[in-house]
């Protein structure tokens, strides 16, 4: 890592949802569901940060909190020095054109009543209402061409395209404003494997070409390894480990990461049979009532008494690896 200043710098971000207990009266205090509970990370320009974790660990909520699509309880999100969480609506609008999002379900993320030309043009028309019609049209054609959709398809509707094509259209919509950051919320989980590779390679090409930063959320570890420079592992709304992608897969620090990595299938039956999968006991605890101290201690093979008392901070372990664990 060089001494560049980060593009995005998230500090102690907390997103808590109010959950009404069953049979609650209107005046009973709601329970707090801690979806994201104190996340810190930096994102450098041109970098890809992979976010992994099992379902329900707060990956998507984290992304939506950065985009201010869900309200945050506490913390700061510094975008080039401005705190996004304290901006007013107008100020936030100005920044929205610098960051875009790609969604999981390609077809559901496109309005079925609009042509793809209208869909891709929408961000441009929203932020630059004065741009002339012909200019909008050329920009839309350019960006569609870039993602590999024939530009003469602009008058077609989303249901006339395949899943992979729809995801490309989603990418085109994200690219038209030439943003600096694209948050990809499981962009390939709904696609089949050969299309996944195409979409990921497209994203990587575009990133290189435009110098974009990506936040890439996924639960497929091999996909994340392929695309990411650094990987952040979330567990129950907490960061348990951030490290360089290579380092994470070679020498995972946190016991949870070790378990995750050991469960990645190896595309060789012999090696796969020899590979020992580290199985975790018990289920994911409820985020309504997370364990005290280290959130992972209830399932950790190395847990000690200190783990129940204090929450382990993220500490530097060399090789650009940060791990939150008392024991390791």
């Amino acid at each position: 890592m060089n001494a560049q200043s980060p593009l995005l710098s998230v500090r102690d971000l907390k997103v808590w949802f109010d959950i009404k207990p069953k049979g609650a009266m209107p005046w009973t205090a709601p329970e707090k569901l801690k979806a994201v509970d104190g996340v810190d990370f930096d994102l450098m320009p041109g970098e890809t940060l992979g976010i992994v974790g099992e379902s329900g660990c707060g990956k998507s909520t984290l992304a939506r909190a950065i985009m201010r699509m869900v309200p945050s309880e506490a913390g700061t999100v510094l975008w080039l020095g401005d705190d996004l969480l304290s901006l007013n609506k107008q100020g936030m609008r100005e920044h929205r054109k610098e960051m875009q999002m790609i969604f999981q379900d390609p077809l559901a993320s496109l309005n079925p009543r609009m042509t793809i030309g209208q869909i891709v043009a929408e961000p441009l028309k929203t932020h630059y209402p004065d741009v002339s019609k012909s200019e909008v049209k050329t920009r839309v054609r350019e960006v569609l061409d870039r993602v590999g959709i024939l530009p003469n398809m602009i008058n077609r509707y989303p249901h006339e395209f395949s899943g992979g094509q729809c995801q490309r259209i989603g990418i085109a919509r994200a690219l038209i404003l030439k943003p600096q950051l694209i948050i990809c919320d499981e962009p390939v989980s709904a696609l089949d494997v050969s299309i996944q590779a195409q979409v990921i390679n497209l994203l990587m090409d575009i990133q290189e070409e435009m110098g974009l930063s990506l936040i890439f959320i996924a639960h497929d570890l091999s996909v994340v390894k392929h695309i990411s420079t650094r990987v952040m592992v979330l567990y129950l709304g907490n960061v348990v480990e951030i490290s360089e992608a290579e380092q994470l897969y070679r020498a995972p620090g946190h016991p949870y990461t070790q378990a995750l990595i050991s469960a990645v299938p190896i595309p060789d039956p012999k090696a796969h049979a020899e590979n020992e999968v580290m199985l975790l006991d018990a289920d994911l605890p409820s985020p309504l009532n997370p364990p005290s101290g280290c959130v992972f201690r209830t399932r950790c093979p190395l847990a000690r008494s200190v783990c129940a008392e204090t929450k382990p901070p993220l500490t530097d372990r060399g090789n650009a690896q940060q791990v939150a664990c008392h024991v390791i």
């Binding site: 875009q100 999002m101 559901a108 993320s109 309005n111 609009m114 929203t126 919509r173």
Partner: peptide, 24 residues
């Protein structure tokens, strides 16, 4: 998700209602 996409893009609420909700 297309409504979320519009919110993320910064489309104003009346426009989301008219352009994305009502036609559907």
């Amino acid at each position: 998700e297309f409504v979320e996409a519009a919110i993320a893009t910064g489309v104003s609420t009346p426009k989301i209602i008219i352009r994305h909700i009502v036609p559907n």
